[in-house]
Design a protein around this nucleic acid. Structure first.
Lengths: 349, 349
DNA sequence: CTGTTAGCGCTTTCAA
DNA sequence: TTGAAAGCGCTAACAG
């Protein structure tokens, strides 16, 4: 079976028609002799022929490729995002290619080059430079990119770069958590993880901050925004935090920047013989796949990551030049045991 | 800045040369007037021009696209694989596109169509049909695909489809684990998770099985190979398993098919008031990012997933027609607390 | 209704 | 050393 490099000429020849007719038969153009069309389709079927997207795209002026720029795909948050975006793309005839957003501006040129030479029909950007607060080179990259293709940002709008963006409500996610913990009787609530210059983090911290004040808990505000985002950062961060207090003054609840950090906290507290939620309540964020299985199961915020990815792709595929808006996705509190709500012995079964 | 749709003609015009010269200047062809070349490069630089990979690929006969077929990318095993493969691809001028391997053969045609219309220069396949034992349609797909592009399989070789494949040593991973647990004094060692028709699973089960026999533990063999691969499957599986024994006869150690299942087991045992490793030791497989942070930290097998992904890509990029071999990657035991080596066990019944 | 032809953006003979 | 021209595989006028 030498089917390997069949092209439209081969099909045309075997079907006894011109390549134009083959093309028409395939795209189901009206005004076609249905007998010929049937014949063409038959040959096409026989060889399992599919027109090359690249070739047809070349003259239609598109690549049917969408690029997604992520700092790291082997991170549950981003892989969930990617998965949803890829599904949405695929069911619309597009393929998703992954670009890695460099951590420092020294990598921007390569990033740009690789993006541009592919001529994707659009790009979705999340994390990395999108989240960075100042980053002077970021704007150059973004503005340059904008000349080439539609951009959808996952995150809050950038003051100096009006465009389409979509994000979970980070602020509300935090106020909701504080309110919940307060309702459970907590007053000394700490906030741990993230990085100050990351916009999502500081948005979440602001929500925490403002709600603490609104509840008259101003004196108890305790923030460790520089602790990072990883499991290890969580473990290290909580250790450091607790070393600054004694048992009577330390926080009775900790809000983590994400579920990874929360899990790190859980591990470290266990190492230190501190019980969750009896001694300290812990709440995460993202509602990642493992959160129902930590010990204890983690109360967290569902950011609806798949939704985020799917919608971002939809916005891109329905692109209208010049538009600029911010689509905010509602977040939900997912209550499990780590916050101390007595659910009873919640069995998996 | 109207840089958006510059092509080689624009550059040629501005540099006062022909498009052929531009092309040559860019590819650094010998015998070029270096003044002209400099001029071209200058203009190229000015507009940040990059030749379209698609267009150049069209006549060079390649797409510089590699496709990776995975059942589900939002799974830590696959996203780690993807990440490594993508990095390797990127640094060689290729882009990775994701195809989703359908769970049932009813989706194979669409899968094939989408793969073929993209004309990738090669494909890496992992999981899904690659792992399925019988699946009669699988061979049709694979054989068809082979006519179009090089294939690298991640997994054990398929009897009826000689090709390049690469995998971790699943058999050895299991025997190593059994040996380790036995050395710690365990005799009633169970094996939980997976699916019989998945080749990787049964390979691992065989390793377990054979080693149990080799150690004279034949009577204690206890396998639940039909329990699945997820966190929930682990929780469900261990619950069911234990319900078939009493405290004196139940296994003192459980080997899980992967870390997800192991984590599910950990959760369920905790729910049941059974302590790990004091009452039951648990060992996972994959060495996923969260394993050092479970409670207790999980002893597991490092499959070197990134290596797998990187090497698979290398094999593809260095493709030689007709070759067929099996590259086995050594696995390593990562000892943490869940197997009881560091915390000590209460008793071995 | 259908074939011929001119590109899409680029590379590569082939001549000059 | 360089330009003109012929494609790569396909689509879309434009004639018939």
């Amino acid at each position: 079976m030498q089917t390997s490099k069949i092209n439209i000429f081969d099909i045309a020849k075997e079907a006894g028609v011109s390549i134009a007719t083959v093309s028409r038969a395939l795209s189901d153009t009206p005004n076609l002799n249905s007998a010929k069309q049937r014949k063409v389709l038959e040959v096409v079927q026989k060889y399992n022929y599919k027109p090359s997207v690249a070739a047809s795209g070349l003259n239609k002026g598109h690549s049917k490729l969408i690029s997604i720029g992520l700092p790291e795909i082997a991170h549950p948050f981003y892989s969930e995002l990617f998965s949803a975006a890829a599904d949405e793309a695929r069911s619309n005839g597009y393929s998703l290619i992954l670009s890695r957003i460099p951590d420092s501006s020294s990598g921007y040129q390569t990033f740009l080059d690789q993006l541009i030479e592919r001529r994707p029909d659009g790009v979705i950007l999340a994390g990395g430079m999108v989240e960075d607060d100042k980053e002077k080179d970021r704007l150059t990259v973004l503005n340059h990119l904008r000349n080439y293709m539609p951009i959808v940002l996952i995150g809050d709008p950038l003051e100096s770069f009006p465009c389409v963006c979509i994000s979970g409500d980070m602020r509300e996610s935090a106020t909701m958590t504080v309110r919940h913990l307060h309702a459970l009787g907590h007053k000394r609530i700490a906030f741990l993880g993230g990085k100050r210059q990351k916009r999502g983090s500081s948005k979440r911290e602001q929500g925490y901050h403002d709600e603490m004040i609104a509840l008259g808990l101003e004196e108890n505000i305790c923030v460790r925004l520089e602790s990072g985002y990883s499991l290890e950062d969580g473990a290290l961060g909580i250790h450091k935090l607790l070393s600054e207090f004694n048992e009577k003054t330390r926080p009775t609840a900790v809000i983590a920047i994400n579920d990874l950090v929360a899990m790190g906290i859980l591990r470290q507290l266990n190492n230190m013989g501190i019980s969750v939620p009896a001694d300290i309540a812990v709440v995460g964020c993202d509602n990642q796949f493992f959160t129902a299985y930590t010990n204890p199961p983690l109360t967290t915020i569902d950011l609806h990551i798949s939704d985020l990815g799917r919608r971002a792709m939809t916005h891109l595929l329905h692109w209208e030049k010049g538009q600029s808006f911010h689509h905010i996705i509602k977040t939900d509190l997912v209550v499990r045991e780590s916050c101390g709500v007595k659910l009873g012995r919640r069995k998996i079964l």
